[in-house]
């Protein structure tokens, strides 16, 4: 379990996060939602240790993350940043193999190769195994990077907008893969997700952030309510419950319809 206590981050005098408290339970998929500039990505980067907090404590299974060595932390938590910029000519397989670095430190064992093959098979990337990542589509590249993160075989995965710029099919594929990671492999996934419908239909928990603080947190049914989301985003919205799941309609606003 990852627990965030009284976390604050500011750049100079400009606070980005203040007094954030949240818990991310193990084996569950938690979505971070909220308007732009709410501090979702900052919170995720602080948990990933890519940024240093101004104050506050983050613990993983009771251990302060700041006390762990970089190499050890990478065996417990894997992070995938938004738009991983990479202009290297690498094959998908080579990229996924990078995910084994925390374990192998560059010397691959049979176990490492097994993990790479599993990660590639898990996301059905077999046909692209030898394709170069600068020659495949954005969605496929995103899948390849996710496979690298999965091959890292960490208890916890942190994903910053994994659905960014993806078409519907790739987005659904990635969310289903994340669901399987939690349900069948017992991994903990924390993802910043902008599409409220994906967040509502695939998450176990939702942490909604606004203005650098936690606005609401809880199970999907607790957070995804018309009044709650309306307040969060400052929009009128309607939640339609269907057998297949719920649908938040925020596309048209009262009094401003065509």
């Amino acid at each position: 379990m990852i627990k965030v206590t009284a976390l604050a981050k500011s750049y100079g005098n400009r606070p980005i996060l203040s007094d954030v408290r949240a818990e991310f339970s193990s084996g569950h998929l938690t979505s971070l939602i909220g308007p732009n500039g709410a501090g979702k990505s900052t919170l995720l980067m602080l948990i990933a240790r890519l940024l240093a907090p101004t104050s506050g404590i983050i613990t993983i299974d009771g251990t302060d993350i700041a006390s762990l060595a970089v190499g050890d932390y990478a065996k417990r938590v894997a992070t995938l940043r938004q738009r991983p910029d990479c202009n290297m000519r690498l094959s998908v397989e080579e990229l996924v193999t990078f995910g084994r670095f925390p374990h192998s430190r560059g010397r691959l064992t049979a176990e490492d190769r097994g993990a790479v093959n599993e990660a590639i098979a898990f996301l059905s990337l077999e046909p692209l195994r030898n394709a170069l990542i600068d020659e495949i589509s954005g969605g496929q590249r995103q899948m390849a990077f996710l496979a690298m993160t999965i091959a890292q075989e960490t208890q916890c995965l942190l994903l910053d907008e994994p659905l960014n710029n993806l078409d519907m099919k790739h987005a659904v594929q990635i969310m289903q893969a994340l669901r399987t990671l939690c349900d069948e492999l017992g991994r903990t996934v924390i993802a910043v997700i902008h599409d409220i419908n994906f967040a509502a239909n695939y998450s176990d928990h939702i942490v909604a952030m606004k203005d650098g603080a936690v606005h609401a947190a809880g199970s999907v049914s607790e957070v995804v309510t018309e009044s709650g989301l309306g307040e969060l985003y400052g929009l009128d919205l309607e939640i339609v419950e269907r057998q297949q799941g719920c649908l938040c309609n925020y596309f048209t606003q009262k009094g401003k319809t065509r």
Binding site: L50, A69, D72, Y73, A74, D85, F101, G106
Partner: peptide, 22 residues
Amino acid sequence: SLAVLDLMALGRDQALSLGVDY
């Protein structure tokens, strides 16, 4: 550092999250 260099080419953030003391 040969193996580390390949990871560093992915950028600071990705290298750090793969356990490289950047």
